[in-house]
Amino acid sequence: MREEISIWFFGGVLFLIYGTIVFVEGLWELSHPLANPPALSNLHAPIWWGGMMGIAGLVYTVKFWPKRHRG
């Protein structure tokens, strides 16, 4: 048996999930500031870092989406 799913698809899915989680957490923190914020929290790293991860993940997920069997 040969695998159908590319390693880059797994990477894309992982980036997409993580990017979404971190991005949403960043948005949540805008309205619910942390009691003990980390250094440089004013830069809102989760929003732009999570956003970039999510976009990269989405691109790879779509590009390496597993192909269906034929016949």
Partner: peptide, 12 residues
């Protein structure tokens, strides 16, 4: 990591 990363990023 603890210094710069809040929830989510710290987990990452």
């Amino acid at each position: 990591l603890v210094r710069y990363c809040g929830p989510g990023l710290l987990g990452l």
